[in-house]
Amino acid sequence: MHALDWAILVAFTVWIVYDGLRRTKDSRELDGYFLAKRSIPWWAAGISVMATQLSAITMIGTTGQGYTDGLRFIQFYFALPIAMIVLSVTLVPFFYKSGVYTAYEYLEGRFDSKTRSFTSLLFLVSRGMSCGAVVSAPAVVLSLVLGWDLTATALTITVPAVIYTMFGGVQAVTWTDVKIMVIIIVGLFAVIAAAVLGLPPGVGIGDGLSIAAATGRLRTFDFSLDLTNQYTFWSGTIAALFLFCSYFGTDQSQVQRYLTARSVDEARHSLLMSAYWKIPLQVVVLILGVLVFVFYVFTPPPLLFSSVQTERLRTGATASSYEALEREFQTAFETRRAAAQGLADARAARDRAAIERQQEAVRQGEAAIQGVRSRAAALVRESGSDRQFSDVNYITPTFILTHLPVGFVGLLMLAIIMAATDTIAGELNSLSTATIIDFYKRWWRPAASDGHYLAVSKIATGVWGLFACGVAVWAAELGSLIEVVNRFGSFFYGSILGVFILAVAVPFATGNGAFIGLIAGMGSVAWVASFTRVAFLWQNVVGAVAVVIVGALVSGIDRAVRR
């Protein structure tokens, strides 16, 4: 990177940390540190909700998915607005009016302490793990750019978030989220502009989208009823409804964001902000990947975007095989480029028959390229240097580093790192809150001073930050990162949602019923995950339904026995 890029990166990072630390003065009491004394305006809480989800995984993994797979992934978010309405009507008023710090605290009032502690523990495990995956995405990028060790890189990314979260609490997290969201949006549109401006003369954005469509990348809707297919209209509207209700309604990293709002209605409005903007924002993220693909239809891309793996293949025992693949790739690229140019020309001439002919030629060229790429990736895996190798996460960083002007590279690296930082900050803050409120204060020191709890909360934030770094190094080996995070969640989310459904919608549900139901729900998910090929999104439905059915049955028996 150029010195100017480094200057932008360092200056903004220092400013973000400094500004976070300035807010320490408002965070000297427990409700100030964890809930900002419920003083955050709805729009800031809403941006914070969105920023916590929009991680570096979105910037790297999802844009990469847009490149390789197109817009299909957007189906995953179809249920989100519906989930926001459901939660605004149901759980939000319960949480807000009960004055709790954590979502799980509410469960003790409704059921018992074991149900609260167990759900909170599940949150700590799943969110702690996903926090690691969130760190690993930018760690991969920085290790690519700087040639640093992955662990050192993960620490470099996590430390700023730990510092301002430790000292500034939720105030620092929320207001930093607002600033970072602006940087991310500017960064996303800068990449889109670079990809579009990089198209050859005579090829417009309409032609680009037409080329993308010829390769299936604008195919958004898949109405097949295949339960093993990860992203279909049905999994996105039914199964994902359960996931989003659980994520936004029972995951402390989200609940804590809107508990800081000034009133119940402001908390609701902060959630509805995501309902309006999440799908359009994800479309922008995926379209970015699609347009980078179109850019590389006309500008020669590397055979593999991972420069480290390319270098290994070029210099190792695989050198001759790789050289042959590169030659084949070059031929396939020229064929596809000529077909794409032909498609643009046919569109300009409004020649329907030629358009269809060229669309078919683009499809064939793309299939040839994908074939060579798959063999190159297989070569990496067979060479033993990375047996789980996936090139998806290297696409966007490579485009940024090689095709954006000086200054913008720094801005984009900043956007990626800060996207991770604000997500990590929000998650560390919520992990610390659940650790202290649901365990330390509940079981070990119920009557200590606010000062004591604050000190312990800061230590907990630091410890969770270190834990995230450890998981990050492991998660980087698991392939496309976006799916890693969702897989972690799906093992618990549906079951935890089931417990909250029992709490709110089943008046006769008892603590024993909820607890046994929760165990049954997790067992059901484990069984489905182990012995069937059902897509992970549907596991949320399985978990929630199992908890409600078993929980209701056991509650009925429990009440009968007591009578």
């Binding site: 607005p81 519906i82 605004s88 993308a212 609701r268 409005h269 309902a275 309006y276």
Partner: peptide, 30 residues
């Protein structure tokens, strides 16, 4: 109708329009 209910209806309208726009994009370029 309360202000919150009006907000929910607006969300549903925007949601339907967004999905329709995505479908139109898919069909227009196919």
């Amino acid at each position: 109708m309360s202000e919150m209910r009006r907000s929910y209806v607006r969300v549903l309208v925007v949601w339907a329009l967004t999905l329709a726009a995505l479908y139109a994009l898919q069909e227009f370029f196919s």
